[in-house]
Design a protein around this nucleic acid. Structure first.
Lengths: 213, 213
DNA sequence: CAGTATTATTCAAACGTTTGATTGAATCAA
DNA sequence: TTGATTCAATCAAACGTTTGAATAATACTG
């Protein structure tokens, strides 16, 4: 106790290094020596704390799962809004939260690239991220969508529409270099984030309107 | 002359191997020995024909650029449709072509993963793919969008809306394992492709309708 | 047209480096 | 002292690349 040290745990530092380096260079593109250097520790610590490089990768994913869970809490599953307008509002709020996390939350900056990279290539990590983070939110969004449009919550069309809405946000982040190039943006700051978010929200409203009639 | 050999060029075989292996395992995750084995040649051929592993990667990208150009030709830039309805139709056609290539074209199957992987990580290759393949089509789609909605073609909102439309298609392909899991699909066949495409087209129509008013 | 010189391509083998992992000693806190 | 943790040093394996000889294709010459 009473940690007067300036540095966090070796364990914690290694996970931070993993998120950063795996997210940028990929798992194969990152060496254990790089990881150790960035975490300011010895290579052997990786094996000691995580059993190996693959174990560190897993620990990075679990670290994200925890942090995202705390930052984007699921609304109580039993408490669904009643009128369509309230359902739509909650969908919009969820997307906005998601966008904030993806584009401009400083504390998410180091793990979002890791998350996206793992999501784009199938494997155990993608599995974990999907079941723990994405799936429960997808299910709830489908229920909300159903409330907002009057369609059955588990209809294929509803599920796909929700995927499409989330997909737009994820895509803008994945293709960020392409988007900034085409838009002649210096980067994605608060203004640009707002523009993207409003585009997606506008698409959402249009889709729901059309689906309702 | 009179090639009675069963195999294509070593050069050609190496590019095919590169598209396949880089697309699945990534650049760092693929060794020159794997590449040579799959191309049924010697490792030294990589250096001989492409200067090295990185050169093969580049050649793979250029091969894609050629193949996509021939399969998805750009309509003549000077021949824009005149009425909004025709413009909308051409946008829809373009998206459908794109979807076919991404999801179900057999001859695209081996290079689509390569293309997506390179697009998701910034670099020289992504640059080439973007400027040669994506950008010209994006520009034309913006013009068509402008015609269909009456808005200025180079308005930020138009560019972003086009990105959002393309992004949906790309995302469904990138996140294919996730989508099939959630939908309880065995895979993405013609039926599933149609469902996805219709979802995106429906979103497109809704967005354009709303943008027009 | 035959025979030779020239070039292009492929090959097995080896190069030096880097990889992830492991070792046993050193260091630390309790 | 004890158990947990970190360390420098080392390991075999795999890495991308290079080598020089062998082979195949092409051009030249008499």
């Amino acid at each position: 106790m009473t940690e007067s040290n300036l540095l966090p745990d070796t364990r914690t530092r290694l996970i931070a290094a993993g998120l950063h380096l795996f997210g940028r260079g990929g798992f194969d593109g990152t060496s254990t020596r790089e990881l150790a250097r960035r975490a300011e520790t010895n290579v052997a610590s990786i094996a000691y704390h995580f059993g190996g490089k693959a174990g560190l990768r897993q620990a990075c994913a679990e670290s994200i799962a925890h942090r995202v869970s705390s930052r984007m809490s699921l609304a109580d599953a039993d408490a669904l809004p009643q009128d369509p307008q309230a359902a739509l509002s909650e969908i919009e709020d969820t997307l906005r939260q998601f966008a904030t996390m993806l584009y401009s939350a400083p504390e998410a900056e180091d793990f979002v690239p890791f998350l996206l990279r793992e999501l784009t290539e199938p494997g155990e990590i993608a599995e974990l991220i999907f079941t723990r983070l994405l799936l429960p939110r997808h299910v709830r969004l489908c229920r909300l969508w159903a409330l907002a449009t009057g369609r059955p919550a588990e209809a294929d069309a509803v599920k796909l529409a929700v995927f499409a809405a989330i997909g737009q946000l994820l895509y803008f982040r994945i293709a960020r270099p392409l988007v900034t190039r085409r838009m002649n943006w210096p980067g994605i700051g608060p203004d640009e984030t707002a523009q993207i978010t409003e585009t997606v929200i506008a698409n959402l409203r249009a889709a729901i309107e059309r689906s309702r009639t």
